[in-house]
Structure formats: C-alpha cells, structure tokens
Nucleic acid binder design. Structure first.
Lengths: 338, 338
DNA sequence: TCTCCTAAGGCGAACGTTCGCCTATGCTGT
DNA sequence: ACAGCATAGGCGAACGTTCGCCTTAGGAGA
C-alpha cells in the first residue's frame, strides 16, 4: 500500500525514472523493447501516478471548485450534476463545498479552494449575492463563473432568462382570461425572486392591470412556504382565479392548500409553477410549469469557465438559458365571472 | 496572480523560507518580533499556502472521494450533503464523481480518485453492487465505506435497516386491517429492492398471508414508474386495498394513478411510501411514509471512514440506520369488505 | 572564567513529478 | 575513413512544502 513511484518502476525496468515518465506519458523517443519492459514493470508493481506531484510541477490541478447552496433540492442538484458531467468530459475533477443557509462560510471555503489551487470556480450561492467580501475574493482569485449575481460584478453569470421564467407563465394565464393573478414568490431577498416579481409586474402593466401587493406573498422557495403563502392569499384577497408560483416545490404546497380550501384546480383556480421538477408531472393535477434546463446550465457554466481560462480570464458575455412552457392540467380558462 | 510561495514571503521578511513555514504553522520557536514581521510580509504579498505541495510532502491529501449515482434525486443528494458537511467539519474536502446510470464508468473514476491520493472513498452507486472489478479495486485501494453492497464484501456498509423500511409500513397496513397489500418495488435488480421485497414477504407470512406475485410490480424508483406500475396492478389484481411503495418518488405516481382511476386515498386504497421526501408532506393526500435519516447516513459514513483510517483500515461493523414511521393522511382502515 | 543550556533560526533532504538539455551509440552517405 | 545525424536514454533542476538536525549567540550557574 506504500505508494509506488516512478522510481520504483524505473528500478524494476533498469532505466532512469525520467525515462519511465516519458513512456507513461507517451512523450520522448523510447525503443519499443524498453517501452514494453517499462509498461510491464509498471503493471506488475501496480504503479499509479501521483496527481498531486504532477499538479505541483505542472502548475495546473485539473480541478474545478464548486460552491453551492444546499443541493438536497432538486434544482441545484441538477445544476451540480450538469457541472460534474461536463467537467469530467474535459478531464477535470470537481471539489464540492456546500454552504450554510446564510452563506456565512463562503469566504472560508473560497480560501480552501484557492489553497488547493483549483483551476476555476463555479458559484451557486444566492445567499452571498450581496456579500462584498465574496465579490472581492472572486475577482482576485482564479477564473470564476456564477449562477447568481456577485456583489460588485466582474464575474460572468449563467442564468435562466427571467423574462422566460416569469413572463411566460403570466402571459399564459392572461391569455386564458385570468385577471386576478396572484403570485407566490421565492425568498424575496434573492435577486432572482425580485427579477421575477418585476417581470410579473411589467407583464401585468402591459395588459393594463395594476400591481396589487395583496396578491403577492413570499413562499421562501420551499413546499411548506408555498402552502402557508396560499392560505394567507386566500384569506385576504378573494376572487383570485390563478396563481403563478416561482418554483415547483412551493407549487406542491399551493396545490395542497387549494385542495384544503375545497377549491378545484384548474376549475376554480389555475396554477403555474416553475422549474419542471420531476414530481410535478404527477401531482394532482399535473402541473403546468416552465422547463428550465438546469443540467445544461451546469454544463454551460463549465464551458464558459474553460473558455475564460483558455482566453486568459477575459470577461465574457453573460449567458441566458432558454426556457419553455410545459402545459399540463393545472391551468384552464378563467371561470366565467358572474 | 503568479503564485506567491514561502520563499517570496521569506525574502520580504529576511529569513529563511523554512522559518516562515514554522511561523505560519505555529511550529518551532520563533522570536515574537520575527514572527510579527513574517506574518505581515505574508499578509502584504497575499501569500496562500499551496495545499498540493503540502499534501505531497505530508502524504495526506485531506480529501475524500465520493462516487455516487446521479444525485439529482433528493435522497442521494441528502446523503451527499451529509457527507460534505461532516467532511468539512473534519477539515476534509470532497471530490465528487457521479456515475452514468449503468455504473460502467465506476472503475475509471475510482482510478482518478486513487491518482489524486484521496484519503478515503465513499460509495453510493447501487448500479455497481455486482461489479467484481469495482469490488477488487475497493479492497485494494484506500479506505472505503459504502451505502450499498460491494461485490465480494470487505467494505463496511451504512444502510437504513430494511426491517424498518419495509416491515414498518407493511405492519402498519396489516394493523389497519388490510389483507390485499400490493407493493411497488424499486428497480428489482437492486439489492435494496430485493431485501425490502423479502421483508414484505416475511411479514405477510408472519400473519399467515401468502405471497402473491400478482400484487408486486417494479416501479424502477421513479415517479413515472410508480404511476405505470399502479395501473398494471389495478388492471390485473382487483380488490387491492393498500399499496406499499418502496420510495416516495414512485408514491407520487401511485397517488396520481389512483386518482385517475377514481379511487380515493385513503378511503378506497391506502398508500405508504418510504424516504420522507420533502414533497410528500403536501401531496394530496399527504403521504404516510418512513423517515430515513439520509443526512445522518452521510455523516455516519464519514465518521466510520475516518475511524477506519485512524485504526489502520481494520474492518468495522456495518451500520444500520434507525428509521421511523411518519403517519399522515394516506392510510386508513381497510374498507369494510362486503 | 568556564561550562552548559536554551532560544532562535538556518540548512539539507525529501515528497513524486515534468521538462529541457546533454551524451553516447550506431548508422548513413560521400 | 570521416563528418553528420538520428535515436535512445540519462541527468539536473524545479514545483512548494515539511521535518529534523545543526549552528550560533547569549545568559545563568558554579
């Protein structure tokens, strides 16, 4: 188990260890017989190259660092899987750091990644989007790409287009004749929730409808928050015929709350979610939602990062991911008002 | 950006680089004034230790490798989060490798982890549970702990007790008076599905009930599989009054299929899931299920691994995780048969 | 005054690579 | 017979650490 090195292989094959290196990396000119002997020797004593030593010498760790929000939710997990697969395709490994909910440990983990000399960093930690220190570190450190805003900018962003994630559902509901369209938002301190709210407002305005704060509730991104938000909405704002929910997890809670109230979806109230979580294809009723390509987003982030590294860390354009509506059974025409 | 090393700090503080090392690691005896000077110098030129070099020299990478099935599902993701947190607590980083569905790339990734000289490996890749090569590599390589069986053994296992995940739900249904209890299994090639099936069978036998293959369908662990399996069951086996579903994701599909058939849950048919997926607290109806501590499982795996490393790779006992029933609204007494 | 001790810090070596340059050997062409 | 040249492989250095041992200087004790 004591690690066997190039030197051990060399001793066995009666050559210098540098020659072994050449053979194993297919570099220099080596006689076929010697090559064969070396390869066999390596095989016999179970030589495994030491990537640490290689990285030290080559000044490239072939490693990406990822700092992410808790990914036990499906959406950040999909993003992460996309990153991992694309990284692997390029021969890179991924070091994972998942943050506390408040993101307070981000700077510390960033430092760990820098000590480990990662070649690049991918961020998905909305809780730090206003953290100036994190912004500074990221601008000073290795190449970085982020899924959320970074305080002070300077880091390219990969994001679903919020015109898509918000405008598509709201337009869909409007086209079905709904006029009192409530919204359950994600945690309102997050920029993505704010952006979607702004788009909701803008689309309503386009159609001559006022923005009514009574129709908007914070669901905090989670199932239970969606459930509670819906009950609050129904308590205080009668006449709601549709709800746009900023993610599918909350939408599950929304459907449950409506059911508890004896309201039928979609007959009494339409619901649109966002993300196309695997589960909502079979909720009762199956949910109309927005499909967001999280896997692809992860892959795109890796590619962007690699471009950035290759091009000497120039600042590329932000990437906006195309999204699309998935029409299922949770939306229908507004009940004929009388 | 060109990396600054101990030597650079040393030059600035007018000492040897080894002295800088001593100060920064708090090792040798150094005069307070010198110490101060060194710390300031390090600060000023932005010294960041090189973990690669450190690992090379110390022969310990402070890294854990994790090989996991696609974790865009919540349960493997929770396990992974648990691992990451516990690893972090011990100052270890985690290198992540997620496999193709068939696990065919496992041996390759294992090799990468060994090249990177990880201190230990945690496996969660059920697709490889019969792969002899993987088993061999794991027994020969660094310390390892697994969440699923390893071909040939020799690796300690951390697992929810299948007496819990299967016996608890089935006993619950029996105690409610159900006698025709169907089961939607996970992918039947997996040992965990097989074990749960065996326990289901054994518990029925305890109560003098025969094992009826017509009541068992493979749902493949996914929502859609649960949905399809339920329709097949209802088509061919009338009189089912309860369904035990081996995971919650499938249970969502089961609830939907029952709803489509016009069967009320729990009045016409009870349903029990497994895992306590966050979503099933608000399905319609909320699902009775088995809570499995996946976070804790991840943390326990890390602790077991560290014990194993510390104790020179002795073979510890397997760990079985305690599970418990969560009673919600999807189960009720069997309809009074007439 | 001499010995001994301790504190402070220098120094060499090693961890396992890769890279570039150097040398020895033998063959080709005239 | 000799210059010229591939071809094969050796060798030194460097990447950035940590570790253990050595040296030096100054002070305490007899």
């Amino acid at each position: 188990m004591a690690s066997v090195s190039l030197r051990d292989v060399a001793a066995r094959a009666n050559v210098s260890f540098q020659t072994v290196s050449k053979v194993l990396n297919g570099k220099g000119a080596v006689a076929p017989a010697t090559r064969q002997r070396i390869i066999e020797a390596a095989e016999e004593i179970g030589y495994i190259p030491n990537a640490l030593a290689r990285s030290l010498q080559s000044r490239s760790s072939l490693t990406l660092g990822v700092i992410t929000v808790d990914f036990s939710n499906t959406t950040p997990a999909q993003f992460l899987v996309g990153i991992e697969h694309e990284a692997r395709r390029h021969g890179l490994s991924v070091i994972l750091s998942s943050l506390e909910p408040d993101g307070s440990d981000c700077a510390r983990y960033l430092r760990v990644l820098m000590e480990r000399r990662v070649d690049g960093i991918i961020m998905n930690a909305p809780a730090t989007e206003e953290d100036e220190e994190v912004g500074r570190l990221l601008r000073a450190g290795p190449a970085c790409v982020s899924f959320h805003d970074i305080a002070g900018g300077g880091v390219p962003i990969v994001q679903p287009a919020s015109e898509g994630t918000a405008a598509l559902p709201v337009r869909h509901l409007l086209s079905l004749g709904h006029r009192r369209i409530a919204m359950v938002t994600g945690y309102q301190r997050r920029h993505s929730a704010q952006r979607r709210t702004a788009v909701y407002r803008a689309v309503l305005a386009e159609h001559g409808l006022p923005y009514d704060p009574l129709l908007v509730e914070d669901g905090g991104w989670e199932v239970e928050g969606g459930y509670a938000a819906t009950h609050r909405l129904l308590d205080r704002a009668p006449g709601i015929t549709a709800i746009y929910v900023q993610n599918d997890l909350m939408a599950v809670g929304v459907l449950n709350a409506l059911h508890e109230r004896g309201l039928s979806v979609p007959d009494d109230c339409s619901v649109v979610g966002c993300d196309d979580h695997p589960v909502v294809a079979r909720t009762i009723p199956p949910l109309t939602t927005v499909s967001v390509p999280f896997f692809d987003a992860g892959a795109a982030a890796v590619r962007l990062l690699l471009d950035r590294i290759a091009s000497g860390n120039t600042m590329p354009e932000d990437v906006f991911l195309p999204v699309s509506m998935i029409y299922r059974a949770s939306t229908a025409s507004a009940p004929s008002g009388e």
